[in-house]
Design a protein around this nucleic acid. Sequence first.
RNA 1: GGGCCCGUAGCUCAGCUCGGUAGAGCAGGCGGCUCUUAACCGCAAGGUCAGGGGUUCGAAUCCCCUCGGGCCCGCCA
Length: 505
Amino acid sequence: MEESNRLEEERRAKVTRLRAEGLEPYPWEFPGRVGSDRIRESCARIPPGEADRSGSVRVAGRLRAVRVHGKTTFADLEDGYGTVQLLLRADALGEAPYGRWLSFLDPGDIVGAEGFAAVSRRGEPSVEVGGLTLLAKAIAPPPEKYHGLQDPEEKLRRRYLDLLASPESRERFRLRTHLLQEIRAVLDASGFLEVETPVLGPVASGAAAAPFVTRSNYLDQEVRLRIATELSLKRLVVGGLEKVYELGKVFRNEDLDTTHSPEFTELEVYWAYADYHDMRRLVESLFERLADRTVELSGGSEEARRRAAAFRPPFATVDFVDELERRSGLVGVAEKGREELASLARGIGSTVPAESTRGTFLDKLFEHYVEPTFDRLTFVVDHPAATTPLAKRHRSKPGRVERFEIFVPPGYELGNAYTELNDPDEQERRFREQLAEKGAEHYAYDEEYVRALRHGLPPTTGVGLGVDRIVMALTGAASIKEVLLFPLVRPRPLPSDRGPAAPPG
RNA sequence: GGGCCCGUAGCUCAGCUCGGUAGAGCAGGCGGCUCUUAACCGCAAGGUCAGGGGUUCGAAUCCCCUCGGGCCCGCCA
């Protein structure tokens, strides 16, 4: 049931009147329109106060502001290419049609105009309108023309209003799409094959996170939404697809906060016969391309240059264990037992459960002592084996794995890469250790994946990148919600849930 | 889960300290205006002050609860 109000009733009445006069408020087409940018280009050659009457132009878009000035009216029309002013004059349109149009039109309406490119006496690129067509009458009024939509809740719940009121918001999402296209372009050009792996499956594995659980009627059993694409993609490498990637949504049944969303876009790349050093070079070159694209698409603004610079070398590199010991003053931290690590974690105020793994405690210590010290994009390398069940043991550092994580100040993670563990028996053992330590509800054991490994996974490197967070960093968004078109929000309570109904009158 | 803050007209915001008939701008209505660009001038209209309860002669304002949102912390990691 749609809520109605006085303003909407008035606009509905206009629709009725339009129809009574034989004018269709929602027609089917407006052929031959050109973008407002093209009209502005033509206007560059026209002196103020004059028009180019050698040929007419057609333009269509949404009315923003309407300035009625007696028998002349100025209206700002916005389309996908920018804005252009419409110049409506009673003597050009005819007195009666001019008055009729003024009584029908409101800001927010979608209109088409035909006329001559012209420049107003004050120098504004315009279309001197000879004919006007209503293309879609807006019943609901648009947000306030100067301030736009400010309420952060409304911006998220009704993104279309945010977009139509805020060019900056439109630009941010346009840049997001172009950055995703650039990621694909870089990987495609390097011979990687884009694939799609299942969202639904019996086991949500590849990361430690709570899955969304739903149900397949066909299978008559529970299925889970993927929390990572890692294990599917490595099966493909076993199958001989040596360079694959997937850029898509993964789902984690957890909180939405400044840097987390229950559904987010992740890039995972797997590359056979390469190791994590190769992967780091690939990621660094990808980052540079994204930085270039950001500057290019932001018109080279100073702000964009500054943000992009963070994605160019030189990057900081820190060894997980060395840096943790340096910052904390602890010695031999990676060799300490679970009990001792637990008490160290308690000492820094962590409340993670006492039965957590050694890896969890090490991560907590690292988060506390090291992450806040990052002052630029930083690669953290060679983590203790206990923190990482899917990575291969380090070729020269005992007790470590070949891994890098990428952090951006003020301290959120952008990505994670390994030289992949491809020894099936060791993989099985590590899965079982995880299960024993953390419990089945936290770690899904994908038995079928281990079976695939037994057929031989070549030496392989893989990476997972949080695409939303990369977009955040490159667009200067303070919250992940600003780079998601439709972030998950709690549904508004229905009117019937708002407490007792009014007493019967 | 804890702390702090916000919710007033379709939109942007005052009013809340210190309780006394709910205000402005935009948008909309009516009138005026042929070069404005947040156009301007005049008139009239527009409210479940998020919802519920309490205190009080009197509550947008003070107190409690609920809902929605924001920020910080914790957790998922």
